[in-house]
Nucleic acid binder design. Structure first.
Lengths: 333, 333
DNA sequence: GAGTGCCGTGTAATCGATTTCGTAGCCCTC
DNA sequence: GAGGGCTACGAAATCGATTACACGGCACTC
């Protein structure tokens, strides 16, 4: 591939001039056309590696995502990629697969590649590696999940309004024995959703006792199914279940179907994170939708603020309750 | 961040020695410990940008995927990422969103970043850009979709066996009026699936007339729904529909439900590309599953063959029919 | 004991760009 | 017409690594 020296020779100028023409840094008049012609003829494209070495800017962002096969994160990744691209950045992606060691491994490689900034939706809880990133000075923004003790802005959705609406919705439909399927205690996201849901229910005089709080370490559908099974074996099984993740909701549905139970007649079901197909299940599932694309966009913008040396605040965007038919009544028109 | 010179000074050796210790290129004895100690104390990590410039190897692969929000491609991307990682490569990802211009744009940026090799699941048909990649000498492997006229190995799934099984399955269940929802004529994947399905049906004396071949340019669920609607308005509507993409299947299901029709009683439904939730719909959908993870792994391995200068052949892995209940009979045990 | 080879290390070139500094040429002013 | 300022450009340093080449010292052989 042609390099800048080839272009310079062909145009009969120095490499400095070529660089200046291409970057428009200082006015270049007469030779300009000759340089551009040489560029065209040789099909020259600047070597980004060399440029990055000299300028200490790679023009790449890193994204470490907790689980790429989870549709919520997929959409998030897609939104991030879109935003990054439209701002002239490439995206180097790493899938932690919910394994903290792998996450650390990735962060390390990304730092070694001298990405300009890093987005992390952290798997697991604390991470020494993340503090190291902050210490290294690489701009960092947390995505979807906060990490206690890490000094970086976090972009995520606020479920308060949606969960308040959900509690009202369930109360209005006469559901008195709600249950929740969550990540194990200690996971910030799980704890928060549980607390908010419990508080919102309390406002309607509805209790959420611990026996109807089911934790599953794998955030997968087998876990969801197992927890749902436990719920149904209770002397007083729940009449409404909130699954705080879409894969877990899938597992819960399986268990219900396996036992011949009907949604919403026997049990109401609500899923956190709306996926394209939840409108297509039978019945369509009432869901709490996070503003995924906006989250992705906001995260990239926040990261760019940091990269450009400005201070950046955390961002909280509201999640919304999407009422479908899985709790009983059809949505009001 | 500390650089190699800092390490050299601290250890009292030259940078060459540090480099040699770290890369194990030539035997270094006495100073070895001193160097490693300095590395540890300074928390030194080699700058990958500088290394890439010198060695002309970035250790990154590029993946341009046609639609990241499509679960099939998500799983593919995940598999590719996994395989790349385990071989010590990072993955720079680009989502073409089924737009050819955007795809070209991405390929260009990836080339500028001097990735070591490129995987492309091409959106649209021909692409001058892809020929340019081949000409540039960057190792290229096509993924899932062939591109006529581009001299690069292609890794994809072969639907012949699965479609043959499907035709037998439908014939056995007495379905005589099959239909297919495909990408528009001219798309290699769509054409091939149509041809194979038609041939397989013919072996059972079943015809697939053009009126029951529905093309949709957007490979999305609205397209699937529209085509299904057209099918149902036929004087003789089909009694079995194959949707050659999971999003289109979703749209088809919607239309069926909207009309109050039942699967499989009124119409049998089969989906190409199995997704985690097709086992959880009502009824569970019979599907043609591509060996996604194997495809991803094979693609990366093929690409590495090319990178290391060996010749690499195209890879065809068989897709499988997964019989569930959406065509009538439960699967045989 | 001189020659031969090998081992471990340092010096400096190199990758391909950007950028600082220096300078030639020109125009303008007084 | 000498000096000042500006413009357009070239020479060379620089980023941080790898690596070709050179060289000193030691062990070994004959």
């Amino acid at each position: 591939m042609a390099n800048i020296k080839d272009v310079a020779e062909r145009a009969g100028v120095s490499v400095a001039t070529v660089s200046r023409v291409l970057n428009g840094h200082s006015p270049v008049a007469e030779t300009r056309e000759r340089v551009l012609a040489a560029v065209r003829e040789l099909g020259y494209r600047p070597n980004n590696v060399a440029r990055a070495l000299r300028t200490a800017r790679t023009g790449a962002l890193g994204l470490v995502i907790s689980d790429l096969t989870n549709p919520f994160f997929t959409e998030l990744a897609d939104a991030v990629e879109d935003a990054a691209r439209s701002l002239g950045y490439s995206l180097v992606i790493g899938n932690a697969g919910e394994r903290p060691e792998q996450q650390d491994d990735y962060i390390r490689t990304l730092l070694d590649r001298r990405i300009d900034g890093l987005l992390v939706s952290s798997a697991g809880t604390g991470s020494a590696m993340l503090s190291e990133v902050v210490a290294s000075g690489t701009p960092l923004v947390l995505l979807d999940r906060t990490v206690p003790g890490v000094d970086a802005p976090c972009v995520r959705a606020d479920g308060r309004a949606a969960l308040t609406d959900l509690a009202a919705h369930l109360a209005a439909l006469g559901r008195r024995r709600p249950a929740i399927i969550v990540a194990p205690a200690g996971t910030p996201t799980g704890d928060e959703r549980l607390d908010l849901f419990r508080t919102a229910l309390a406002a309607h005089g509805i209790a959420l006792p611990d026996e109807r709080v089911g934790a599953t370490p794998d955030l997968q559908h087998t876990g969801g199914r197992r927890v749902m099974s436990g719920f149904l074996d209770l002397p007083e099984p729940p009449d409404a279940v909130l699954a705080t993740d879409n894969l877990m909701a899938l597992g819960a549905m399986d268990e219900l179907r396996a036992r011949g139970l009907r949604v919403p007649d026997d049990v109401a079901l609500v899923v956190y994170d709306d996926g394209p197909w939840f409108a297509h299940t039978d019945p369509p599932l009432t869901a709490i939708a996070q503003p995924t694309r906006e989250l992705g966009r906001a995260a990239v913008h926040t990261l760019l603020e940091r990269i450009e040396g400005r201070v950046a605040e955390s961002v909280l965007l509201p999640a919304r309750l999407i009422t479908r038919r899985s709790c009983g009544e059809p949505a009001a028109p």
